[in-house]
Design a protein around this nucleic acid. Structure first.
Lengths: 202, 202
DNA sequence: ATTAAGTGTCTACTAGCTAGACACTTATGC
DNA sequence: GCATAAGTGTCTAGCTAGTAGACACTTAAT
């Protein structure tokens, strides 16, 4: 494969990743609006000029961070069917489990929802992404032929799941992800609908 | 000041820091002995050649990581008397609090004591460092003139503190550091000696 | 009103990092 | 016990990401 261009972008992405990481830590430390470009490059041990090579300002960095994490969340959903973990996760609910384990792996980032002066858009676009995942990648089936507005139901289920997630994150991820997803699935079962994964078309 | 050489080493230290960070994550993932050099550079997004510029092998990287963290622990002790937090911390026990808050800040690293196949030397040299700090930087005074072997007592106190620390880390840092240090101090008070900080001579 | 700190931009330089090949040494498996 | 794969350690030549430092300008802080 053509590595020449990959390497260049890999090297740039590495720098960007470090700048993003610095922003996360600094938001926790002093809040988003207090963070300066100088803070970011000092924390990440880069020159200030380097920052402006990659981003035009702090806002663009913040947007990049938010988008990359939420896209990662979306992409994580279909992964159990690529890796070799079908057996274990099939007993649970594989796609939901992937959402949860992705958040767990990146708890460093998702803890930001606990802060008030945090990444702009996080509090609205995070739940929106979960709804999007539910709408695009899941099919919901009735189990006793009761007519229900599907959009409402998906929205309801997504926000229910988000509520549990928020609680899990706020409590500092005390439960292991396996336990958390088990509880979430138990709650879902009490509803009149069962939902089934329809795959990842990308 | 002469920035030319500082910058060069800053850039190198940045790379080293990323390699160290990758090692920490990989030890948690698959255990120290299973981690390869390729794993490390893949995780940190560097070329394998770059690794050998900085370290001769995995062992040297591991040693560098361990030493830098334990040295950081030692250096953290005297810091309250440099920054402007004298008032608050004086009510507690400032030097001990600095140890605790340093561990809390670097919990990503110190969590490694929970793993069996972990950084070589961590399980022995971490408590040794705490003893060293107690011996070199604290003076213990009798409060009722009972003769006691001082070395034994310092050792006893250091290991008692280490035991509490271990428990705190194993439980995933659930308590905030302020609470933890309060409890540790309460336990220390029950002893016949009071101890007092004698400063940081370096 | 004055000092200090942060922003955004630009230029020329350089050294840190990369690609890729080398011989060699372990693992893994049929 | 042979073969394929994966990892190790070393080296060279080359590129480009990152750096220094100055610029005019705009907010904060005292």
């Amino acid at each position: 494969m053509n590595n020449e261009q990959n390497t260049t972008s890999q090297r740039q992405n590495r720098t960007k990743a470090h700048l993003k990481h610095a922003l996360i830590e600094l938001i926790k430390e002093k809040g988003y609006h207090s963070v300066t470009v100088k803070d970011i490059v000092d924390h990440a041990a880069y020159n200030r000029s380097t920052f402006y090579i990659h981003y035009i300002d702090k806002v663009e960095l913040a947007e990049d961070l938010l988008v990359s994490m939420l896209e990662g969340l979306e992409d994580s959903v279909g992964k159990a069917y690529v890796t070799g973990q079908k057996v274990q996760t099939a007993k649970l609910n594989a796609p939901s489990f992937n959402i949860v384990s992705y958040i767990y792996k990146n708890q460093n980032f998702f803890t930001l929802i606990n802060y008030d002066d945090t990444l702009p858009g996080l509090h609205t676009r995070f739940p929106q992404t979960i709804i999007k995942i539910y709408k695009e990648q899941f099919i919901f089936e009735t189990i006793n032929n009761i007519p229900v507005n599907m959009d409402y139901f998906k929205r309801y289920t997504a926000y229910g799941f988000y509520g549990l997630l928020q609680n899990w994150i706020e409590n500092g991820f005390k439960e292991p992800p396996e336990h958390f997803i088990q509880e979430a699935i138990e709650l879902t079962k009490t509803h009149i609908y069962s939902f089934q994964y329809i795959g990842h078309n990308k």
